[in-house]
Structure formats: C-alpha cells, structure tokens
Write a protein that binds this DNA or RNA. Sequence first.
DNA 1: TTGTATGCGTTATCAT
DNA 2: ATGATAACGCATACAA
Lengths: 367, 367
Amino acid sequence: MGAVNGSKRGSTRTGTATMHDVAERAGVSIKTVSNVVNGYQYIRPATRARVEQAIEELGYQVNISARNLRQGRTGMIGLAVPELSLPYFAELADSVIQAADARGLTVLIEQTNSVRQRELEVLSGQRRHLTDGLIFSPLSLGPEDRASFEVDFPMVLLGERIFGGPADHVTMNNIEAARAATQHLLDLGRRRIAVVGAHEGEAIGSAALRVQGYEQALTDAGLTVDPALVGEAGLWHRATGAEAMHRLLDSGVEIDAVFALNDALALGALHALHARRIAVPEQIAVIGFDDIDDAAYSSPTLSTVAPGREQIARTSVDLLIARIADTSRSRPFEQVVADYAIVARESTLGVAGSTPVAPVLGRSVVA
Amino acid sequence: MGAVNGSKRGSTRTGTATMHDVAERAGVSIKTVSNVVNGYQYIRPATRARVEQAIEELGYQVNISARNLRQGRTGMIGLAVPELSLPYFAELADSVIQAADARGLTVLIEQTNSVRQRELEVLSGQRRHLTDGLIFSPLSLGPEDRASFEVDFPMVLLGERIFGGPADHVTMNNIEAARAATQHLLDLGRRRIAVVGAHEGEAIGSAALRVQGYEQALTDAGLTVDPALVGEAGLWHRATGAEAMHRLLDSGVEIDAVFALNDALALGALHALHARRIAVPEQIAVIGFDDIDDAAYSSPTLSTVAPGREQIARTSVDLLIARIADTSRSRPFEQVVADYAIVARESTLGVAGSTPVAPVLGRSVVA
DNA sequence: TTGTATGCGTTATCAT
DNA sequence: ATGATAACGCATACAA
C-alpha cells in the first residue's frame, strides 16, 4: 500500500455554538431558544424569527449528548445481528434503518458473529446506555439462557430461538412455511427430497422448525422421512451449503430435489450441482428460504420462501417504539407472526417457467 | 399478520445506579469511583476492591451520555454508505465495524441511498454530533460539491468521486486495476471485450476511471475502442447489469468477453447470458470487480478484482483515529491507495481451471 | 409569552 | 491517595 502527501485544514464547524450563545445574540433567554428549537407553540412570531436568525447565523445545532443526559433518552435503538456479510441480515438491517428513520430514530448496529459471549454482552453491555431499546436476533443463545433475557430495557426479539420470553417477539411460521416449500417440490412430482442445513440434535431454532415442516409435508403426502436425505450444515453460508450438497451426492443416495434451509445454503448447493454437471431443476430441483436479492439473479434463478422482511422490520420498530413509550410497564408482551410467500423461480420450474409466477400467499398464523 | 398475547415484566436493569450511589456504598468520594472506573493508577488496593465490589453489587455502568457531555467525545464514528443491500457495502461495513471494535470504537451506519440530498445531510446533519468522526463513501456528490466537504470534523473519504479534497482519502488504483482486469481477458485471446456499467458523460467516479483503464488496456494491445461495446448502467445492481447485457446482445455487436464494472453487474450479466443459453466462458468470458462473497459461489464462479476490503477498512479507521487525535490540526491530509488483486475463476478460465489460481498481485501505487 | 434556576452523571481542577 | 466542587449543554418547574 502506498501512502502520501496532504495539506492545510478546512473549517465551517456547525455546532460549536451553544443555546446560550444563541440566546445572547437574539437577546432572549436560553429558555426561549429551547422553546423555539423544540417547536413550542406559544412564541411571539417576532421572537421566534429573531431566534431562528441567530441560530442560522451561528450555525447552531443542539448538543445531543446534553439532551440525552437531561432527558434520559438517546433517540437511538440497537439492532443486534450475527453479521452484515450475510445478505439476509444486511437486507434486514437496511429495512430496519429505513423504518426507524421514518420514525425519527437512529439505528446502532451490533454484530455478534453468532458468538455466545458477544450475544450475552449485547444484553448487558455498555452500548445499552446508548440506546433506548434493542431489536435482537440471537443465533447462539437459547431457552437455557432465558434468565439473560430478563432485561429491564425495551427489547424486541427476532427469530426462533426464544419463545414465550419476557419480551415482544417477531417471528414467522417456520413450520408452515417449510411445509409449503416442501409441498411445492412434492407438487412437481419430486419424491426424494433432501434437506440442506439441518442442525443435528437441536430442538429449537430455525433449523429444527424448518426440518419439522419438511417432515410434516412428507408425512402428509404419505412418504416416509429418510434420514439419509437430511444434510447437516452448522453455519448457513454458501460454502457450507456447497459442502453439504457434495456430501449428499457422494453418499450415493437418490435425490430429485433439495430444500435448503436458507438461500445462502441453496446458492452453495446450486454451485455444487453446477460443478457436478447436474441439471437444475431437470435432475434436481432446488428451493431456498429468505428471498435475498441474490435469489432472483442466480443461474438458475432460485425458488425460495419470502419471509416478508420489510414487514418484520417495520413491525419490530413499531413494537419497540410502543414498548419504549410504555412507561407504566403494563403493556403485555406481543408475539407477531409475519406473513410468508412461496416464490417459484427457475430452480424448481425450469426456464420454461421463467415468466414470473404469482407467489403463493402464506396464511397468517397466530402462534 | 397475526398478533397476540403476553404478560408481566422482567427486571435486572444494570446501570440505574450512579457513581454517587457507588461512592456512598463504598464509603468513598465520587472522584475515587471515577478513578477506579477509568483505571487510574494510584489507588490503594483496598479502596479499589471496595469500590469494585460496590460496582458489582449495584450493577453500576457508566452513563455514556454524561461522559460524552463532559468530554465532548462520543466514542462513536459514523460510516456513511449508499445501502447495505449492496453486498460490497455490507461487507465493507462488516469490516469497518470489526476494525473499529478492535480499537474500542462504535460504528454508526448511515445509509444515503446515493441520494444527493442525503449525502449532503451526512456532512451537516445532527448525527455529526453523535460521532467523533466520519468515514464517508459518497456516490452522488462530486468535485462541484467541494465546498460541502470543507467540514470541521475528522473525516476520511472513500472512493473515487473526490480527489485532493480537504480530508484523508482511501482509494484504490481503479485505472490500473481495470487495466489488469481487461488484460486478463486479452491474455485469454479475447478481442471483442464489452463493458457493462459505464456512466455516459461522467468524467469522475469509479465508472469513468475503470472505463479509462479498460481503454488503456485495449490501446496498449493495439486494439481500437469500439463505442458499441460500451454498455451503460447507472445503478450498479444485478438488475441493471442484466438489462445492459441484454441490450448489448440485442444490438448484434460481436462480443467475446465482458468486463463488468462491479460484481453485482457481473452477476446480472451472467444471469442474462444464462437466460440466452450463451456459454460462459466458452462464448463470452466475464470478469467483475469487488470480489464480494457471492462471486465465489455463482455458477460459473466469477472472476473479479479483489480490492482489499479489510485493508481499506482498517486503514480508514486508523486514519480517522489519527485525525481525531490530532487536536493541533496540523496533520497533513493523507491519500492511501489500497492494493488490488485479480482473482481468476471459472467465468474466465472455464471449469477446467476451477482449481484455485494464485491471484495476480496488483502493484501498490501512489496517486 | 418569556425568564430564572436547578440538576441530569461525568470528568477535571485544585486542595489536602 | 482521596475529597469537594465546578463545569459540560440542555430541558423543565416555577415564577413573572
């Protein structure tokens, strides 16, 4: 890396002036400036004008730290996710930021990398002082950590690892959605449907629920669940999806379709199938879960389950705001189940079906 | 969407206690507590122990707002990017957060959506009071907005839209990297190399520079630049990449390779080529730019230019920290040019070459 | 409709 | 090595 040169220094700092300075310049008291800044109604127009001019001239901006200290609120909410490198969480963060923005809130993103210790810190760390509330999508903590979730600040939980906890909760009907995804493959006549991304021995979390939905669909169709068709993948990344797919193929088990528990896994699986010259969907159909942007542009395009990301983001922010506003601490905890939709694309329909297919709307269900 | 039920309320708020409470409980003055908290050296072990126990018992945590007010610093830095939905920026944000974390700083992400007004607000808005400095990757503002960049807070600029501005700057040698990417295609014997993602009439920014590198490579090889081979795409998304590719193909111009100005465009182009049953790389080779995670898992895997994301993130954070620490305001502005590397994958080498190829290291160059 | 005075929880200055 | 006390900039109770 090369490094070099430089020179002088610019200026024009806004915000060095205090309310006091503005008051002095406008010939009013500090209280009046405060009133103007905060949109207090009963101010003589002439006074307001003078204050506003002084503000303009001095480039005054309120000192947020001071306001925070005084009010005990920060105007920021935390969003704790595993990692932004995972498209699903990047897109979720995007949506949450927009929803919060629309309501005048700033979002502070925290990455846990799914590390247990970091997830615990999210619940107790210093950053909680910087925010009025938290939207938390845990991936390592589970029911056994229930006590850690007994926090005394507004919190909205996302995902499937904690249920019935002492917090608002936004989730989706994973079992039902997974059942629908599997059913989509069954409807295409597939009978040897593999799963990619299972978590062996885990009873909670998205993996367990989605596998459960998968098994339900098979059973409902009168088929038996073949353990040889269930591929493990601890992390839900493209790399692990590709590995799991290779393992399944190497095992020699007959497969005519794959249900990947998220889109990253599915894209990895597609990659593995492509490498082995296996035609998708002719030989093996593939469906994923999440409907990340990528899914619409892979080759072939990826069929998937759309989890209503924007709805989840908006709902989470709204619940959190309501919780923050509830100073009486009497508001009951809510659990919201978001809608889902099956999005059928080339990886199950083939190129012939590449014309857009109307999504199959999922039912809204109360947990 | 369904909604439901709930009950009671947890507790265990850490941080309700103040230094004053701790001092009282430990039987010392508030100053001593402050000393302990801030790791002041000269404290009698017994005193320290008593204070620490009181802190433990009360679950005391420093009130950051108060500290900020008093110190005039926040411990937060801003990172302003177009959108997190774009994998490149999501991955960059990830890296910046990690680099900042390692240095005890918190990152506040702001999305501009590449909207001019929002980019201007980043430079003047309220959030600047929340942060000690800013890492800014503008996409709409340019040299004509030079005055707006004359700010009085620590700032590090990323990208190719502002050069020689009154701020530290981390960039890469786009021309050279684009030339190398094009050369890679030329080395494979391709001669009708199209570009996807050009910005007509723009003289600055990544698009212009990368097109310039492309033209340079062609000229150096004794070829002439054919305007019919230059495909426009204002936004660098997968969708626009696919559209641009379709337009080029529809135009009937002869093409045996494509240099997409970023990976999203390249993946869109791959998608279009796949839809038209054009073999990559046999009929048309494709190379992108950015080396996002996706590139390694598309079908075929995507050759691309790796811009040293982690290096850029680390360098930016370090420069910003140095700038924040420079209270004398005498530090010269630095421009750092990050390394790049050509990563050759299937989209140019074919599946035969799917065995990992050692990246061609780019030269470090001083602008 | 506007002004005065107090305190939010810290850190920093100055004593001791 | 530790304590008293004064800001930091703002919002608000209370007065006027």
